[in-house]
């Protein structure tokens, strides 16, 4: 049985459909990359799955249970954690406090939350900066703290929204190490929205491509990269026609 199953999900804003009839599934422990041009509906898809937006139609089944109508905090409690594209962890809290907020989802006890948070910081190579306020850290580190916080809630599936956007190659390398750790070491399933192709293609088991709110491709990274539909979406129809021989 798949961990996450999305069936014919559609989301419309007014007359505009941001997601149209999208179906896919994610297996336990799988790492799925989601790519697509700007405005393809990637973040909307995350918002629908995690309960931030009510869906217009379709179903989201997580761990065998229908979670379509649940609110954001309820999906989180069932093991579906996420990060946000536009903001990182809480700036007014220190690094360890941030991660502890995540850990408090699993336990009421402060000492247990602290112990769990320390362990996660250790795994993420963030131990030295536990007492620094997140607002004072560089963006790349903030993004890693955000991932650590989401991880603190003990998810079975982690939705990462553009964690590598705007970072330098070195920083991307560090983030990639963290993602690999979550995926291969902890065995947590990950869905990853990313514009940095290098990262997506390297770490993903499978890549899904969205364009104009529709799913246009789904498969292993190598196959998807060669898919004419995908190339058309990214480079435009004319480019594909004129450079047929090159491809």
């Amino acid at each position: 049985m798949a961990l996450l199953e999305v069936l014919n999900l559609t989301k419309t804003f007014g007359g505009l459909s941001a997601n149209q009839d999208i179906s896919f599934s994610v297996q336990e422990g799988e790492l799925v990359g989601i790519i697509g041009p700007n405005g393809a509906g990637k973040t909307t898809l995350f918002n629908c799955i995690s309960g931030f937006y009510p869906v217009s139609s379709g179903k989201v089944i997580f761990n065998g249970k229908n979670i379509t109508a649940l609110k954001a905090h309820e999906t989180a409690r069932r093991g579906l954690a996420r990060t946000f594209q536009i903001y990182a962890a809480s700036g007014d809290l220190t690094v360890i406090e941030n991660v502890m907020v995540g850990c408090f989802m699993r336990t009421r006890s402060r000492s247990k939350a602290q112990a769990a948070a320390e362990e996660i910081l250790n795994e993420f190579n963030l131990t030295g900066i536990g007492d620094v306020f997140v607002g004072e850290l560089p963006v790349a580190v903030q993004k890693r703290v955000t991932m650590a916080t989401a991880l603190g809630s003990g998810p079975r599936l982690l939705l990462l929204d553009e964690v590598a956007a705007g970072l330098t190659p070195n920083e991307i390398e560090e983030i990639m190490a963290n993602i690999r750790h979550i995926h291969s070491h902890l065995g947590i399933a990950v869905m990853l929205i990313e514009h940095v192709m290098e990262l997506v293609m390297k770490v993903s088991d499978r890549v899904m491509v969205l364009d104009y709110g529709r799913k246009i491709a789904d498969g292993p990274p190598r196959t998807v990269a060669k898919d004419p539909e995908v190339i058309k979406a990214y480079l435009g129809e004319r480019f594909v026609r004129e450079h047929q021989e090159m491809l």
Partner: peptide
């Protein structure tokens, strides 16, 4: 404190 900072983030946790 997490809510004060960002409510969406808080509910995602």
């Amino acid at each position: 404190r997490s809510i004060r900072d960002n409510e969406e983030m808080a509910s995602s946790l």
